[in-house]
Computed example of a mutant assay.
Amino acid sequence: MSKKDACIADLKTRVLTLNLAPGAMLDEVSLSAAYGLSRTPLREVLQRLSGEGYISLEANKGALVSAMDFAAMRQFFQTAPIIYCAISRLAAENATPVQLKKLRAAQFEFSKAKGGLDAGAMALANHRFHEITGQMSANPYLFPAMGRLLIDHTRMSQRFYRGAAPQDGVRINQAAHQHDLLIDAIERRSPEEAVEITLDHWALSRDEIERYVWPDPLPNDFGPDDTARQET
């Protein structure tokens, strides 16, 4: 792997795992030193990451990790189920045996990370799983759109995979089971079933993403008497 490819892969991982926070500024001098790249190849790296949606290049600001603001989240919720369902339908129609083998391998990595309670590895394996379904679609319009969605989806899923409550483990097991069902539907060339499973999978993801976007409220420290005084 070349230095440029290694830099791209590492920066993608750091963005997806929130090692680089949304909106964070990337210092070209520091990156150049860290990855052993001169200015020209580093800028080629940044241009590619910008084209894929991992970062944004802004005049007078330089390179910034793609933000996750309110407008972006609203568009995410509007768009994700449409893109994911279209991808799953086409995956069931177009998947090749080689791609199915890769999908099973990604699911194996997800299950292994789940068993080891490795949140970062689970998030990246889940990202890879859905990225492969996008490749299966063989659609040059949908696949780039899905790639952009997956960046934010993977970042927001960190809370899901790092959850410590018992119900979090149940949901993760449910997500893994839905992966297995989707693989089976794709292998059997069943587009309608693949879409149905995808909708169930999206509903599970949506609930967890909403917990990320709208966290639990602070506990109410007022007792009954205090509440009454607050209302008078």
Rank of each mutant, 00 (worst) to 15 (best):
I132L: 13
R128A: 15
M136Q: 13
A175M: 11
A125C: 09
A119E: 04
R159C: 04
Q135W: 12
G147Q: 13
A175T: 08
S157G: 10
P140H: 08
G163M: 08
R162A: 15
A164D: 08
G120M: 00
A138L: 12
Q135T: 13
K114W: 00
V170F: 11
G115A: 05
F143N: 08
S137D: 01
Y141T: 08
N173R: 15
F129N: 00
Q158N: 09
A145N: 08
S137T: 06
G163C: 09
H130M: 09
G147L: 03
F160T: 10
S137Q: 03
N173F: 13
I132G: 07
A123F: 03
V170E: 13
H153L: 15
A176C: 05
Q135F: 12
A121Q: 09
T154F: 15
L150C: 09
G169D: 04
G116N: 07
P166D: 11
R148I: 07
H177Y: 13
N139L: 10
L150V: 11
L150A: 06
R155G: 10
L149D: 12
R159T: 02
P166H: 03
M146T: 00
A123T: 02
R128C: 11
S137K: 06
I172K: 12
N126M: 03
A164P: 02
L124T: 00
K114A: 08
D152T: 11
G163Q: 12
R159L: 15
A119K: 01
D118L: 03
H130C: 03
A175E: 09
Q158W: 02
A125M: 07
A123Y: 01
G147H: 04
A138D: 13
H130N: 11
R171Q: 14
A119Y: 00
N126A: 14
M146I: 07
L124N: 01
D152M: 12
T154Q: 14
F143K: 11
A165Q: 13
Q167H: 05
A175V: 08
F143R: 12
A123C: 02
R162Q: 14
L150M: 15
F129G: 02
K114I: 00
R155D: 07
G163H: 04
L149C: 11
I151V: 14
L124H: 02
D152R: 09
P166T: 05
A119D: 05
I132E: 03
A138C: 11
R171K: 13
D168W: 09
F160E: 14
N173W: 09
R155E: 09
P140Q: 06
R148S: 12
E131Y: 13
G147F: 02
G147M: 00
A145W: 04
V170C: 05
D168K: 04
Y161A: 06
D152G: 07
G115S: 05
M156N: 10
M146H: 07
D118Q: 04
A175K: 05
F143H: 11
H153N: 14
G120H: 05
G120W: 01
T154W: 14
R162C: 05
G134R: 07
H153S: 15
I132R: 05
I151H: 06
R171G: 03
F129C: 01
R128I: 01
V170Q: 14
G147D: 00
T133R: 14
L117T: 04
L117F: 14
L117R: 12
